[in-house]
Every structure is written in C-alpha cells, then in structure tokens.
Design a protein around this nucleic acid. Structure first.
Length: 973
DNA sequence: ATACATACC
DNA sequence: TACTGGTATGTAT
C-alpha cells in the first residue's frame, strides 16, 4: 500500500507537506503547481501550523547535528572509520546471498478492488477514503498529485473530478485472503505486511520447482465475458546471475487496462507447449515462479501485483517498487549486482528511511546509498548505534534473509478522531467507549497488558501520550478505564480551568504478559492468599504509590468533579450512578467474592475442586493464580481524604492500618520487582485505598500500617520481624469486610489518643522480644511446606532472603504471603525489606478500636470472617482457617493452631489452586496526579517510582461492602 | 519507564 | 468543513 510522505521540495514549502513524487505513478508531474495548491489549501490551518512546528523541530535537530559534526576531529573520524571497516568486514563475511526473497505488493490495492467492482471507475481518477483522508488513489488520480495520506478535500482541489470511494475493509480483507492463498503455495511461511503486501522466501519452492513437471507449472487462463484471455504473461527462461537486471517484459501500461484488455501472444505456444489453448506455462526460475504467482493472482482476483526478487528483504522491497505497477524486478544474487544496484538508490527508497531521516542525511550531503557508504564514519559519530548500523547495512545492500512470521504482538490500541470535543462528560464517556472497544479486541486475542497509555491530540494537532504501568496485566474495559480515566483526569486537571480541546483520543495497552507469565508456575500464591480479589470484570479500585516525597496534598482547586455519563451500557452494572464516574476516585461495587477472606475463598475453592475431582487440571500444573507479583506495585490513595495525621505537614508518615490492600476488595499490592531490591519498602508499597488514609501493608503481620513514611513502616516491619506485636495501628480486614460503622473521624481520634500509649508499649515489648529471641518472622512451617526456606543469613543489610529449596513449581513470588513488601532478589527470591533505622520507632502507630488482639508471631492474616458478627474486641478467637472457635484466649496457643491450620490449608490449596485475578489490585495513576502540581509531573528519578493514588469515594467502604455477586468461580477458574 | 518522534501501510 | 488508524521502534530523558 502506498503511503503518504513527501519528498523535500525545498524552497518555502514545508518539505513535509509538499508532494511526494518519488512513488510510482507520480513521475513528471507539475510539482510546483501541485504544491501551490496543497499549500494554499493548508496554509493557516491548525494542521499546517503544527506541521510547521514539527518541521522546525526537525530543523533544530539538524542544526544540532551539524554543530556536532563541526566538532568532530580527524582523529575521531579515522577511529570511526576503522570501526566501520572492521564492521564492514565482519558483515561482508557473513553476507548471505543464498535466499530468494520476494516482496509482492498489490498495485493501488484498495483502489483496484473498488475499480474492479465498479468498472465505471476504471477510467476515472479515483481514490479510496474520505474527504478527510485518502488511503489510496488510482493511477489516474496520481497524475494530479492525488495520493495516499492526502486529505480528500485537498485532493479534490488538485483534481476536481476525483471520485472518492469509501473504504470497505471487509472487502479488501476478503481479497487479501484470496491473494494470500496463492502466496502460501510459494512459501507457506510467507510474511504478510498488510492486506496488500507480503514477503516470501521462495528458495525452497524453487528447489522443488526445478524438478517439477510442466504440468505443475501450467495454469489455465480465466476468460472474461467475451471469451478472451484476461491476462498475459511472458514466460522467460532462467537467466544466470548476471549483472544485468531483468526487467518485466510487459509495459506497465497494461496495468491501466487491466484486467481485461490485453491479449497474450504466447498463449498458444507457451514454452513447453502446455495444454494448448488458454493456458500459460511458466518456467522454473525465480522470475518465472514470481511471474506465475502474479499471473495467478490476477486470474483469481482481477488485480495486479508487482514484485521484487532479491537476496534479502530490504532489496526485495526496493525491487518491487521498481517496475510497479504490474511489473517485477529481479536483482541477481551476487554481490556485485547488489552493490551496483545500491549505488544510485536514493536513501528515501529504503524502507525505514522516512522524511526526517532523509532530510537529516540530506543535510550531510547524503542522498543515495553510495554516499551512505562513503560517509559511514561520520554517520557512526553522529547517529546512534542502531541507526548507523542500519545505514551500514543499507550501504552494503544487506537485509534480513529469513522471513519470520511476526512474533507476538507488542501492543494493541484504538483511537478516534472527531470534531473538537470540550465537554468533560463527553471526553469521559468517549474514554470509556474506547476502553470497551479495546477490551473487546484484547479479548479476541486473549491478551492482557500491564501498561495502559492514553493518547490525546488537541485541536492544534499536538499529541500527548500518558502511560501507566500496573503491577499486573489488565484486559477488561473497566480495568482499562480505571487507569485511562485517571490519566485523562490528570490531563484535564493540568489545564484546568481550561478544558481540554480534543480532536483525538486513543487507548493503548502494551507490556503484554508473556506466555510464561500466563503459566501457573508464574502465578503467585499471593493472589491466592489475598483475602479478596476483585472480579476482573468489575471496576477495579486501583490505587498507586508514589515516593513519599511527593506525597503532598494536591493544591486546592485542582480537582474538579468530572461528570461522566455512562453512555455506554455498563456490562457489569456496578456503577450505582452513571453520572458519578469516579474520576480520581475509585470504582467500588465489589463482588461478594471480594468480601470473602482468603480462607473463605480457599475453602470454597477446595470444596469446588473436590466436587470436580473427576475433572482435574490437565498437566497437573498448578492451576492457580493469575496474580503475579508485578513490578512497582502498590496501591495508593488519594490525598483528598487524608486523615488528620496525614495532614500534619511535618510528616508524611502517618497512618492507620487496614487490610484493604490485601483484601483486594479495593486493591492489592504486589511485590516489587528486582528493580526495587535496593530498598526497604520502596515506593512499591501498598497504599491503602481506605478513605482518608495512606497505608502500607506489612508483609509480616499482614496488617496495614497507617503510614506512608517508609521509615516508619520499616520500623513496623522490623518490629514484626522481631516479634513485637503490633496491636495498635491496625484494624483488621475484618473491619473492612464488615464495613466500619464507625465514623472515620471517630476512629482517627481514638487512634490518635492511643498512639503514645501504644508506642511506648510497643517499644517495651520490642525490646523484650529482641532480648528474648531471634527473629521468627514467617512461619517456617509454612515455608517448609512450600518447599521454601527462609534465609536470614543474608546479612543485616540485606534483610531476609527467601529462596527456593525444592523443585516446587511455584515461583518464589508465590511465597510472599503478603507481596507488598517483598522485594524480588536477583536470584529470583524475595527479600523482606528491612528497617535500617530502628530509631524511628514511634509515632506511626495508631490504635484501632476495632482491632482484636493479634498474634505476636507474624505472618498470619488475621482475617476472621466470623469476627464480623462479633464485637471486635471479643476475646474468643476463631481460627480464620478452619473457622472453628478456639477455646482459648492465649494468643500463643491460638496462633500455633492457626499456623498449623494454615499450612494444611495452603498445602491443600496448592493441589488445586485456581487463578486469581489481580487486576483490581493495581494502582491507578490517578492519585499521584492528584497530589502533584497540576502542571507538570516531575520526572522520576532513580528507583523511586512516582506513583499516585486515587481518592476513594467517600462511600467506598460502604459500597465495597454492599451486596455483591459471588464470583468465586470466576476467580478460581 | 515515560514521552515523544519517526516510520510503515 | 475537512489532515486517519494501528503497530513497531527509535530517541531522549
């Protein structure tokens, strides 16, 4: 397919806007006249102005380059020259001329299809597209300068009689399929580049073809209505690999008259005789094979194709353009022929060298490939390694010699252009719509990605992209929207009170989880241990984290309500009020699943598995958790709803606990990846989404520490590690599950009042503990049962290290009971961040009136469903695992019981773990934007990831606890 | 990692 | 009136 682009036409014109006449069908046009019209149509427009701006940027870039060039010394140059020569030598040594690569390109494909189906168009200038944009033009239209990527209204000015036909991709796809069926006969592994072009490696085909009987090379002509042959071909015999290029024997004029007008002088006496009559017999050489292929394409589709035959893809591509349309060109497979071919080849003809590169090279006096070779040392000094290596390849006529089918796709996106859009509601609902569309596309390919990118183009054609990477992959509309809306909101806030004046919006998903990541062994037990995981199809409360440093309240007046009409049908129907879009807020509405504790779910799962025992998972692999410990995870929360303590300007460390991060009803956190191994609890922590709080979830006790200050948090962890019970500063997830009927403020007050007392008590106990015994942070029993070992020998600075000690097919990540604070170590293990400054053992604690005495020993999620019906302070202890009330108030005894129970539970579940959705535990970008200065986001430095947090809606807790669907099956499938 | 630019069809 | 949409990759920070 022809593409847009322009060749620099110099003087006064924007080179990027001027006519590009270096494509087929554009020769000998009145360029000046055409350019005048183009300019006249464009000048003064926003588009033009933006093009102007871009052009200037390119010019500046060139200036910088020239400046750089001026400072290059002879010495540098000769050194570079040496390097170039060495590299050239190496490349030359491995030059592969053995393959026969073909690039086939349908001629003016869309236009040709339309013309075929509507013969009236045959002699008219026509183009496919709209007044806004053309995708192709036929050769009549090209004479007027009308070409692909030109807006229709300008094309109309160039050619008032131009017929514009709307695109019909379904039709083109169908034709494309027909053509590709033919390709497959010559190379079953052909590589389609688009609907209308493909690369083939016909080396094998030629091998076989050499011994083919004539019958296999004989093709019958389809006849048209008048009974005459519809096409011709000129069979020629194999030619040696001489220097002489071989040229298509037919005039391109044929193309204009295709498909019906020509007759074939060789019809009756094709070489070898054939079957006589309307048949064509083709030879055995590469050109004959390609000619045959093109012949068959034309017979089958009435469309013509052009082709290039060369020893590599780069050359084949150039060759296919050489005798277009309806022609082919073969570049012999010998080095000299290649080098001769390359010499005069304009660099712009090479795929990969576009407008800008052409211009930059042009500034260096490089216009054709021979110059490229001559100036390689200079290029090596002025361009990046990848760039000049590419240039070197080109200058040597090198290219890829094996056709590889596309690997896995790397991104998927959807975008839409529209008339100026200003209304927030419109923007919001469009965003949602795009997410829905994209989610649908993702679903078709069963893809999930971790990075969501929002693309915006304003009415001045300025493009902006904003991306957010989540700890684990997402795919559903709501998941995408949760991120996209926050990204969008940030942009809106950034220009507030002005509205965004958009002309385009797009959403992209990338960072797809690899096939491996989808495999059970990569699944994390963490997800399984999550008390509640949101239904992936339900809106996710996403929160994000960010460096504490940036943890400042957002300047007032920056947030504004963002009405978002839910124009699109809510598949989940979880939004109570379609007009309350939760910008920067959280989507709530949890499923019953989410309200369940891990134990409840585990139980349900086990029961389910027992019921399905006759239908066990196939390969016996763990079939468990989708949840994976992603990078930089965590959840944050918004600034708007800070607790009184958080408002303390002197510390960002305050907080309260909640299990929300673990309960997944809101979000969940994930272990940081190796990138965050350095620290303690880096920013990859879990921010509670609890309204009014920022909290982190302790990996040891699983409780949320109501702080955002890592030092404080680390101290808490340290305390836990050393066995000091942290009874303060906590409220269990039970509270969340139950729904706190206590007013947040009251809770806060009560907590504040107890802080000092608690702190003193905590310190005292900590000291006791430290004296009394070493660390026993995690349940060794449990780790053992998982085939893992706890290594505390890593040294004080490194904290604890977990590593695999058996062949258990669980990734180490899976062991992190609470992924939040675990760092992935280079060896694949995870370490528990350790506090380095134990001095800060105070102030971070707040008591929670709802808290129940907890085990001093650690890694037990103290989630006890039954507690819901209890007074929180009710001393009777119910095992969260077996749900049996323990007849003791002795925590040590109780914890021992739970430990045993838990280990059994885990072992049980590991036999039939099901996947768990982690998507709702991701952090959204919302918040950090909330907190940051509205205008610009500070670039992230170092390992500290900026992460934001989403302000949860005030009613979040309540909503989260509302009636919900039970979607266990979904999670555990 | 993010943002933006370039390139291709 | 009106200047695309989808994917990959390079460059710069």
């Amino acid at each position: 397919m022809e593409t847009g682009g322009t060749s620099s036409s110099g003087e006064g014109f924007l080179s990027r806007m001027a006519l590009n006449d270096n494509k087929a069908g554009m020769e000998g046009l009145d360029r000046d006249k055409i350019n005048k019209i183009i300019m006249k149509s464009s000048k003064g427009s926003r588009f033009y102005e933006n093009e102007m701006k871009k052009e200037q940027q390119v010019n500046q870039r060139i200036e910088r380059m020239m400046l750089q060039k001026a400072h290059i010394t002879e010495q540098q140059l000769s050194k570079a020259q040496t390097q170039v020569e060495k590299m050239t030598f190496d490349l030359e040594r491995v030059r592969d001329l053995s393959r026969v690569i073909v690039h086939v390109d349908m001629d003016a494909f869309y236009a040709a299809v339309e013309t075929r189906d509507c013969p009236d168009l045959k002699d008219k200038p026509m183009a496919v597209g709209s007044m806004s944009m053309l995708t192709t033009s036929n050769y009549h239209a090209r004479k007027f300068g009308v070409r692909a990527a030109m807006p229709g209204f300008i094309a109309k000015k160039l050619c008032p009689n131009l017929v514009i036909v709307p695109t019909d991709f379904d039709k083109y796809r169908a034709v494309s399929t027909e053509v590709q069926e033919i390709f497959a006969d010559y190379d079953p592994h052909f590589l389609p580049m688009s609907l209308d072009e493909a690369y083939l490696d016909i080396s094998e085909h030629l091998e076989q073809r050499r011994v083919w009987p004539e019958a296999l090379r004989t093709h019958r002509l389809r006849t048209n209505d008048t009974g005459t042959a519809t096409s011709v071909s000129v069979p020629v015999e194999e030619q040696g690999d001489g220097l002489q290029e071989t040229v298509e024997g037919l005039s391109p004029v044929l193309f204009e008259d295709s498909p019906s007008s020509s007759s074939c002088p060789f019809l009756q006496d094709a070489p070898g005789g054939g079957a006589g009559g309307d048949v064509m017999v083709f030879g055995t050489c590469a050109e004959e094979a390609v000619r045959e292929m093109r012949f068959r394409i034309e017979q089958k589709t009435s469309l013509t194709a052009s082709a290039g035959i060369a020893p590599n893809m780069m050359l084949a591509k150039v060759c296919s353009d050489k005798n277009k349309p309806n022609g082919q060109y073969r570049l012999p497979s010998n080095r000299q022929a290649v080098m001769v071919f390359i010499q005069d080849l304009p660099v712009r003809k090479v795929s990969g060298i576009g407008n800008v590169t052409e211009k930059m090279l042009g500034a260096l006096g490089i216009t054709s490939c021979i110059h490229l070779g001559q100036e390689m040392a200079l290029l090596a000094l002025l361009f990046s390694e990848t760039s000049w290596h590419h240039f070197l390849d080109i200058s040597l006529g090198l290219g890829s010699t094996h056709i590889e089918r596309d690997g896995e796709r790397k991104s998927m996106s959807t975008e839409r252009t529209f008339g100026e859009m200003v209304a927030l509601e419109e923007q919001c609902s469009l965003c949602r719509q795009l997410c829905q569309d994209l989610a649908q596309d993702l679903q078709k390919e069963a893809l999930k990605g971790k990075t969501v990118t929002l693309k915006l183009k304003n009415v001045n054609f300025e493009v902006k992209t904003r991306a957010w990477t989540l700890p684990c992959a997402v795919a559903t509309s709501d998941e995408l929207f949760a991120v996209a809306k926050d990204l969008l909101k940030t942009e809106i806030d950034n220009v507030s009170p002005q509205p965004l004046r958009l002309r385009l919006m797009g959403i992209r998903v990338s960072s797809f989880v690899s096939a491996d990541d989808k495999k059970p062994q990569q699944k994390s037990i963490v997800g399984f241990l999550q008390k509640g995981r949101a239904d992936s199809s339900s809106p996710s409360q996403i929160s994000s984290h960010k460096p504490v440093k940036e943890h400042q309240p957002k300047p007032p007046g920056q947030t504004q309500p963002f009405p978002c009409p839910s124009l699109v049908q809510q598949s989940q129907g979880q939004e109570d009020h379609p007009w309350v879009p939760s910008w920067g807020g959280v989507e709530v509405g949890r499923t019953g699943e989410q309200q369940q504790s891990f134990f409840q779910k585990a139980r349900a799962q086990r029961l389910r598995l027992q019921a399905e025992r006759e239908d066990p998972p196939e390969d016996g692999k763990w079939n468990v958790l989708e949840t994976r410990l992603g990078p930089a995870s965590s959840a944050t929360k918004p600034k708007q709803t800070q607790t009184p303590i958080q408002k303390n300007p002197n510390t960002s460390a305050e907080t309260h606990f909640s299990m929300s991060a673990l309960t997944a009803s809101d979000n969940m956190t994930h272990a940081p990846t190796a990138s965050s191994t350095e620290a303690h609890v880096s920013t990859s922590l879990c921010w509670s989404t609890e309204p009014g709080t920022d909290s982190l979830t302790c990996p040891v006790c699983f409780r949320e520490v109501n702080t955002t200050d890592l030092t404080v948090f680390n101290r808490h962890v340290d305390q836990c590690l050393s066995g000091v019970p942290m009874e303060h500063n906590i409220h269990t997830d039970t509270e969340l599950e139950r729904g706190s009927s206590v007013c947040e403020e009251e809770v806060e007050k009560e907590r504040e009042g107890e802080i000092e007392k608690e702190r003193a008590e905590g310190e005292r106990r900590r000291e006791e503990r430290l004296m009394a015994k070493g660390r026993d942070p995690l349940s060794r029993c449990m780790l053992d049962s998982l085939g893992l070992r706890l290594d505390s020998s890593a040294g004080d600075n490194k904290g604890l290290l977990l590593y695999e000690t058996s062949t258990t097919n669980i990734s180490l990540n899976a062991v992190a009971l609470n992924p939040v604070c675990l760092n992935t170590c280079p060896n694949g293990g995870v370490s528990i961040p350790r506090v380095t400054d134990p001095n800060i053992l105070k102030g971070s604690s707040q008591s929670d009136p709802c808290v129940r005495p907890l085990s001093p020993r650690g890694p037990r999620p103290m989630t006890t469903p039954k507690v819901e019906s209890h007074d929180p302070r009710e001393p009777t202890l119910t095992c969260p695992v077996c749900q049996v009330t323990q007849d003791t108030d002795n925590l040590t005894l109780f914890n021992r019981h739970v430990d045993l129970c838990l280990n059994q539970e885990v072992l049980h579940e590991l036999e039939g773990l099901a996947s768990v959705d982690c998507t709702t535990h991701n952090a959204t970008p919302a918040a950090h934007k909330e907190r940051e200065q509205p205008l610009r986001r500070a670039p992230q430095k170092g390992k500290s990831k900026r992460r934001g947090s989403s302000p949860p809606p005030p009613s979040k807790k309540v909503k989260a606890l509302g009636p919900v669907r039970n979607t266990i099956d979904k999670f555990f499938r």
